[in-house]
């Protein structure tokens, strides 16, 4: 994590599917560099043998029985979609990729 400054902002924006303005690209690049620089201090800690923590309190086997209930009616499901047709959400042409 020492290659700060080498942030590929376009790669990240593409992964995150956010179109950035030139101003944002510049601003974020430099701010991210600062922040990643700040993160460097984590390198000073010895974490060997330390379990990573994915949950504040980890319990196990939180499961539900396989019982089914009624779902949304078709109108509710697509109520807030910006475009819809035949109770389905309409999107512009999907290009493969």
């Amino acid at each position: 994590m020492s290659d700060k400054g080498s942030i590929d902002i376009d790669y990240l924006a593409n992964l995150a599917r956010i179109e950035l303005t030139d101003k944002e690209r510049e601003l974020f690049s430099s701010q991210l560099a600062d922040i990643l620089g700040y993160f460097e201090q984590l390198n000073q800690v010895d974490v060997s043998g330390v379990e990573p923590m994915a949950h504040a309190f980890q319990v196990e086997n939180v499961l539900r029985e396989d019982e089914s209930v009624e779902g949304f009616d078709a109108n509710t499901a697509v109520e807030h979609a910006a475009a819809k047709r035949n109770h389905m959400v309409q999107v512009p042409k999907v290009v493969e990729g």
Partner: peptide, 9 residues
């Protein structure tokens, strides 16, 4: 579901 110029989900 693909149609001409749009898709429905």
């Amino acid at each position: 579901n693909h149609f001409d110029g749009y898709s429905l989900v």
